[in-house]
Amino acid sequence: MRELLTKLEQASRLDRIGDRLQQAVQGTLRTQRIRDLLHGVWLGHPLHPAMVQVPVGAWISAAVLDLMPGQRRAATTLIGIGTASAVPAVVAGLNDWAALSRDQRRVGLAHAAANSVALACYAGSLAARRNGRHGMGRALAFLGLSVVSGGAYLGGHLAYKQGAQVSQSISELHLMSDGWHPLGELATLPERQLLTREIDDVSVVLYRHGEEVTVMLERCPHQSGPLGQGEVQEISGHACVVCPWHGSTFRLNGGEVVHGPSGNDQVVLPTRVVNGRLEARLP
């Protein structure tokens, strides 16, 4: 299985399909507001993993009921709920997929293909059940559950092995030691400019506004872009840093994500000033 997934990650032949689909998704979901909504920016957490709980939960429950006598109507209802709720989950997933790197998109393409086949199976199961062909409906549902389980395996590989939509910066917290770390004299820090410093070899961004200083991890949660090289913009009255790689935007006074493709907030470190020296520590 490991060898198969490695070959899938390296299958450059899939890029022709993937690149065209990426363009189609980005062309359809044109507005930043819609993309942010589907990325889960308003949650500070990717939306797609939360949305898939409804269809998967409904389909698994329907499979249990299909094994019990006298539960045709309940199972059919759950198949319908799962099939309908899968559609917005697919849209959110495609939005996330379009912002991934090529090796991630290759595995994501197989993930999407498996889930599309499963969705077709469940749609067929629902149609068969409504036409009184419950045996066919059960068979298609069990086939769909098998296929969607394979798709879920690929989704787990995307998240846990390839780090898709997982915060790429959070692991750096484990490299920092406990206690307060000096970052320089407060008076020497320029106002409203991004500076980079290091804490235990971990790069952080400093931004001073008056007597207040923000210290946040420099690696963008999305794809590890260098926020220290980003642009500062004022959005809704808040100073924000825009990642130079993919445009993820974070508030400098709290780390909240304002625009995707990141669905995760950025980590901001607690600070204090002692005898004119700025210090920061682990949250």
Rank of each mutant, 00 (worst) to 15 (best):
R2E: 14
L4F: 14
A11M: 14
A11N: 15
R13G: 13
R13N: 12
L14V: 13
D15R: 00
G18A: 03
D19I: 08
R20H: 15
R20S: 15
R20Y: 12
Q22W: 02
V25G: 06
G27W: 02
L29M: 14
R30Y: 06
I34N: 03
L37A: 15
W42N: 10
W42H: 15
W42P: 01
P46A: 06
P46Q: 01
M51G: 06
M51I: 11
V52I: 15
A58H: 03
W59M: 05
I60R: 03
I60A: 09
V64E: 05
L65R: 06
L65M: 14
L67W: 12
M68Q: 14
G70A: 11
Q71C: 06
T77M: 11
T77C: 07
I79Q: 10
I79R: 13
G80M: 09
I81N: 01
T83I: 00
A89Q: 01
A89T: 07
V91W: 05
G93I: 01
A98D: 11
R102Q: 10
R102M: 08
Q104E: 13
Q104K: 11
L109F: 04
A110I: 02
A112N: 00
A112K: 01
S116L: 09
V117Y: 01
G124M: 00
G124K: 00
S125N: 04
S125I: 00
R129M: 08
R129W: 12
G135R: 15
M136E: 11
M136F: 07
R138Y: 01
A141V: 05
V148Q: 02
S149L: 07
G150D: 04
G151N: 01
G151K: 04
Y153P: 00
L154C: 05
L154F: 05
G155T: 01
Q162N: 06
Q162H: 02
V166D: 03
S167M: 08
S169A: 14
E172A: 08
H174R: 13
H174Y: 04
L175R: 15
L175D: 14
S177V: 04
S177C: 04
D178L: 11
G179V: 12
H181Y: 06
G184R: 03
E185I: 04
A187V: 09
P190A: 11
E191H: 09
E191Y: 00
E191S: 07
R192H: 09
Q193L: 09
Q193Y: 02
L195R: 09
T196H: 02
R197C: 11
E198G: 00
D200Q: 03
V202Q: 06
V204N: 08
L206D: 01
G210D: 04
E211I: 04
E211N: 13
E212L: 06
T214Q: 03
M216L: 15
M216Q: 14
M216A: 15
L217I: 04
E218L: 01
R219V: 08
R219Q: 13
G230Q: 11
Q233M: 10
I235G: 09
S236N: 15
H238C: 07
C240N: 07
V241E: 07
V241P: 13
W245L: 12
W245R: 14
W245Q: 12
T249E: 04
F250N: 06
R251D: 03
G255C: 12
E256L: 13
G260M: 09
G260F: 02
S262K: 04
G263W: 08
N264F: 13
N275W: 10
G276N: 02
R277A: 03
R277T: 13
R277I: 10
E279R: 02
A280R: 07
A280T: 09
R281Q: 15
R281K: 15
